[in-house]
Design a protein around this nucleic acid. Sequence first.
DNA 1: GTCTATATAAAGATAGAC
DNA 2: GTCTATCTTTATATAGAC
Lengths: 193, 193
Amino acid sequence: MKGSSDTRERLLEAAGRLFGEHGYAAVTVKDIAHAVGIHHASLYHHSPGGKEELFVEVTERGLIRHQRGLNAALARSEGSLRAQLRAIADWLLSQAPVDLVRMALSDMPQINTAAAETISNLAHDALLLPIMTALESGQARGEINYPDLGNVAGSIFASIEALHTIPAIYLTKTRLEMAYDLIDIFIRGMQTD
Amino acid sequence: MKGSSDTRERLLEAAGRLFGEHGYAAVTVKDIAHAVGIHHASLYHHSPGGKEELFVEVTERGLIRHQRGLNAALARSEGSLRAQLRAIADWLLSQAPVDLVRMALSDMPQINTAAAETISNLAHDALLLPIMTALESGQARGEINYPDLGNVAGSIFASIEALHTIPAIYLTKTRLEMAYDLIDIFIRGMQTD
DNA sequence: GTCTATATAAAGATAGAC
DNA sequence: GTCTATCTTTATATAGAC
């Protein structure tokens, strides 16, 4: 466990959770420090770069985590598009919501442009490419027949993530069941034969 | 034009645009005042309630605007589900992006709970109900055959809004053409016969 | 490694001159 | 109706004691 102390790790976890849920501007370093039970001044001992560096670090970490999770989901569900998209939904709904719109329009303009560019590219590679890969495999196997698959990946991602925000009171079935329903709609909809 | 001076109107317009794009926390009263070319102290003359009241006012206004726009879209496209959903996409893509996830997870927790509740309900009624109405009409006409339509309305909304964030460089066709493609996918996908 | 104290800056807001 | 000046609060960040 080299330089990464336990407290630092808990700080990164809390920062990732809070930034992910509320966005860069709405979270203060005080919120983050308080979440792990230390004074906010102590935070700078573990993360000397302060708020912005913390945000960049945990956001990149979170995206890489998703990249691994989604690629693992793909790997263990090879053979059918439906199984692959369900595995992707399993993963995404087991994790905290990811709001790509907020990241693009609200968070990114508030950090340095170089980091923003890195994160934007990583978000695309980590979240959208796996869905794209699944769609192309399915297309190659003849399960769907659709031009312009790139268009659809973002839509599937947004559809699944939107399920996160449905208040529990309105749920007639689980979010995962809803996601599976949506996946069937997308697959059927891309069968243009 | 009674009490609503021209400057006040321009302030509301700027506030609506900035809050809508970047969210409550990321926009300062200085940003808003600067956008209309006045000192931020002057803003309080037109909007004595300050930032929070301004946010609530323009957000409700924007949602009511969408409610009118979407219901008008429905009214002028009666007869076919595809035409109605296309009219909805026409409207949504002609307007600034609406990030319901950010509103729910980031903006609402930062304002008083009563206003947050009002806005949340209004967002549902203004944005999701029109889509729901179109789907139910289409179902009644036999154009689609799908249980659990409530599930799908949010997904269609999220899918269309996600198009807003595709960088212009990646566009192989217009966002509206992409939206029409997605609508066909959804309609075909909801034909379970 | 954590705290208290403090510095600095930014943001929301008000008072009062013009 | 707009400005300057000011106040208050909050936020980011640093210094230094423990």
